[in-house]
């Protein structure tokens, strides 16, 4: 069995390095920061970490139903494709900053893209 994308990118250590960079970008992006501005930053960071782990094909327990339920209140706040696009933008930029090879970025982006319909409740 070939090594998973998660392992090739660098596993848990890579995710931890990426997730704070990503969360800073998101918090500073006026288009989407209202969706991420929870009271407790540690909880928010843990959610971003779960998202990255999923995007990298790492061990996660997400199901499509979880994704829908977790984001339903954001859809009510107006979450749509433009916001999902912005998150994808930051995901790509974060990995570029960390010198992840382009072909691995493309793989991760494809996995994250697969969650679009569930996240947006479509």
């Amino acid at each position: 069995m070939s090594e998973s994308l998660y392992d090739r990118i660098g596993g848990e250590a890579a995710v931890s390095a990426a997730v704070e960079t990503f969360y800073r970008k998101v918090l500073e992006d006026y288009r989407i920061n209202r969706f991420f501005d929870g009271k407790d930053m540690e909880t928010q960071l843990a959610k971003q970490k779960a998202f990255f782990t999923m995007a990298f094909g790492g061990p996660n327990n997400y199901t499509g139903k979880d994704m829908r339920e977790a984001h339903a209140h954001l859809v009510k706040m107006g979450l749509d494709d433009s916001h999902f696009d912005a998150v994808m933008e930051h995901l790509g930029a974060t990995m570029q900053e960390l010198n992840v090879p382009n072909e691995l970025i493309a793989e991760a982006a494809a996995i994250a893209e697969g969650a679009r319909h569930d996240v947006l409740g479509k």
Binding site: E20, Y23, L27, M41
Partner: peptide, 15 residues
């Protein structure tokens, strides 16, 4: 405290 925590994080401090 909560405002500065965010400011410090955005300035590069790890949570």
């Amino acid at each position: 405290v909560s405002q500065f925590k965010k400011q410090a994080f955005l300035k590069g401090a790890s949570l």
